[in-house]
Computed example of a mutant assay.
Amino acid sequence: MTTEIPLIELRELEKYYTKRVWPQKGQVLRAVDGVSVSIRKGETLGLVGESGCGKSTLGQITARLLEPTGGGLFYKGEDIAGSGSRNQQDLRRRIQYVFQDPFTSLNPRFKIGRLLEEPLKLNRLGKAAERWSKVSDMLESIGLDESYRNRYAHELSGGQRQRIGIARALMLNPEFLVLDEPVSALDVSVQAQVLNLLKDLQQELSLTYLFISHDLNVVHYMSDRVAVMYLGKIVEIGEMEEVYAHPLHPYTQALVSSIPAERAAQKRERIVLQGDLPDPSAIPSGCAFRTRCMHAHDRCFSETPTLADVREGHAVSCHLWSEESYSVNEIKEVRTASL
């Protein structure tokens, strides 16, 4: 029996920054700290967490916009961290990035037609007539008519600009898209339109997504699986419905409890986290979440938990799920409360 190779795989990926300004000169900021995760072809992996937890940094490394400090980044089983220039150009076509703010990511001096044609010109793909034909086809596929090719980005609404950002990322027929907070700057009604567009395009073009957001409700709608990130580490990962229904990590439980319930039977007790996210350059010893966790105990102060399977396909990084931490009765009480 053969195991399918993931389209994208991260192995102990790290991204560290060293502060060079006094008074914190020499202090290391661990933006991404030993992340291991795989993304199967055709699926959407949601990546959720608070601002400053390292989500965007991880996305930029995955799209080869940033170089990792350590660890491995694999595309179809091939290590692409530090790839040569020839291989890098091919990877640029296959892996694309959609930015959070479409206005600042679109050149204001170019008309929309040129913005969409530019990737084809840079990669010397097709003659002028073929490129313009593809621009028209792409505009149609994102729900805009051909007249938009003669407009500038500032003449469009936020939702239209984000559609253009998505279209530009698709011009080279990629397999994998990193979507970095693609709807956070849009009105709620426009968010739904863009999310539905992304789902339709995924089906039509057989795309694979890494969907980054701080909004677990949006991630729940878009994703097949979800990874929860806290201070540079993945603290929980599993199938979306499983994590949504049975969150195991106290941080995930707090995130899920903040989602408005559609029915009275779905209501959970609201968990309000105390304190702010710690400074990533001064991460607490042991479990990084212990300063905000109501279940913190002695082991949390001295030992860093590791990500381990609790159920098949559902892993969590928390001492609550280790038999060594509590008595059997105490573990049962904590686990029952989370379910």
Rank of each mutant, 00 (worst) to 15 (best):
Ser189Asp: 09
Arg114Trp: 14
Asp145Ala: 08
Val98Asn: 11
Ser189Thr: 13
Ile80Glu: 04
Pro68Glu: 10
Glu175Phe: 01
Pro108His: 11
Lys134Phe: 03
Gln160His: 14
Gly165Trp: 09
Phe103Ala: 05
Val188Lys: 01
Leu116Arg: 13
Leu91Thr: 02
Arg124Gln: 14
Gly126Thr: 00
Ser157Gln: 07
Glu130Ala: 15
Phe176Ser: 09
Lys76Ile: 00
Ser141Lys: 15
Lys134Met: 06
Asp137Thr: 10
Gln193Ile: 11
Leu195Gly: 01
Gln96Thr: 08
Lys76Leu: 02
Phe176Gln: 08
Gly70Val: 03
Leu73Gln: 07
Gln191His: 05
Ile164Ser: 13
Gln160Ser: 13
Leu156Ile: 10
Lys127Arg: 10
Gln88Leu: 15
Lys121His: 05
Pro119Gly: 04
Val194Tyr: 02
Leu177Trp: 06
Ser184Glu: 07
Tyr148Gln: 03
Asn107Trp: 00
Asn123Glu: 04
Gly77Glu: 03
Leu144Pro: 01
Ala128Met: 08
Gly84Phe: 00
Ser105Phe: 10
Phe99Ser: 11
Asp180Lys: 04
Gln96Gly: 12
Leu116Gln: 14
Tyr152Arg: 05
Glu155His: 06
Leu170Asn: 14
Glu140Pro: 01
Glu155Cys: 05
Met138Phe: 10
Gly126Pro: 00
Arg168Met: 02
Leu156Tyr: 02
Leu73Phe: 09
Glu175Arg: 11
Gly165Ala: 12
Leu177Asp: 11
Asn87Met: 09
Ile80Thr: 06
Ser105His: 13
Thr69Lys: 07
Leu177Gln: 09
Gly159Arg: 01
Val194Lys: 06
Arg92His: 14
Leu106Thr: 00
Ile95Gln: 05
Ser184Ala: 14
Pro174Ala: 11
Gly113Gln: 07
Leu170Gln: 12
Gly77Ile: 05
Ile112Met: 04
Gly159Trp: 09
Asn107Lys: 04
Asn150Arg: 15
Leu139His: 01
Gly84His: 12
Arg131Ala: 02
Ile80Gly: 06
Lys121Phe: 03
Glu181Arg: 12
Phe74Asn: 00
Val183Ile: 14
Ser85Val: 13
Asn173Pro: 02
Gly143Thr: 06
Asp145Cys: 07
Phe103Pro: 02
Leu115Gln: 10
Pro174Ser: 09
Met171Leu: 11
Phe110Tyr: 15
Ser133Gly: 14
Ala169Tyr: 13
Asn107Gln: 03
Lys127Thr: 07
Val98Gln: 11
Leu139Gln: 04
Pro68Met: 09
Ser83Cys: 14
Tyr97Ser: 08
